[in-house]
Structures are given as structure tokens and as C-alpha cells.
Amino acid sequence: MELTIITLGWIGLYAPLALGAVGSMIGCLRGGMAACGAMLEVETGFGRFVGVAAMPSSQTIYGIVVTMALPTAISPENSPGMFALGVLSGIALLVSAMSQGAACAAAINASKSKPEVFGISLAPAALIEGFAVFAFVFALVLAGRLP
């Protein structure tokens, strides 16, 4: 029983990083594919499309920081908390990165035909980033309260 609880603790420790990285991969893939498609249609502005496509990579960084903030000494007392905190923050980062990738793809698609909307088209992606930051910050706060 104790071994199972400890295992959950280890899962919780690595979950923010792993799930954040998976989300970033999928998000960057979506944005990157959109950027490559848009490059066929426009003559200039390739760099900014690639820049937008890279936006979902921040979730991996948040995941690394949350993993580092969790206690390194895993015990039966702190494992349930670590599991809950790690997995839930990881899921939040995963979904936010995937959604942000789709929002970036939509922004690239819109600004390809209408370059003047480039800035405002990124607003949905920035909002999603805001939600990821909430999940990240409160994971850090709660990590400090774990035994």
C-alpha cells in the first residue's frame, strides 16, 4: 500500500513536466503546420509566423518550474498531495498548450490574408497563456504547503 502511495508521489512529481511537454509538442505542431501553410501563401513575414507557432512552448517551462518546486523527498505523507497537485497542474498545462496551438493557428490563418489584424488576432492565444499562468502560479503556492 505504501509503495503504491509513493509511486503516486513520483507520478505527481514528474507529471507537470511530462504533460506540459506533451501539450507544447502538440501546440507547436499545430502552430507550426499553420505557419508552414501560410508561408506558401504570403511573400513576407515568415519570421513572425514561426514566432507565433512557438508560443505553446512556455507550458514546458512552467512544468519544469512546478516539478522543481515540489518536494524532492517523497514520503507517504506528502505523496497524495504531490499526485493531486502534479497531475492536475500537468493536465491544465497540457490542455492550455494544445488550445493555444489551435488559437495560434487561427491567428496565423487570419493574419495571412489580413496582416493588419496580426496583433489583435493573438489576443485569444494570450488569454489562454493567462490561464496557464494561473495554474502555474497556484501550483507553486500550493507546493509550498505540502508536508
Binding site: 499545430r30 503546420m33 499553420a34 508552414c36 501553410g37 501560410a38 501563401e41 493557428a105 490563418n109 490574408s113
Partner: peptide, 8 residues
Amino acid sequence: YDLVCSLP
């Protein structure tokens, strides 16, 4: 994603 973005 790539195909839709490559269409005008």
C-alpha cells in the same frame, strides 16, 4: 492546419 492556412 497546413492545408487550410495555405489556401487564400
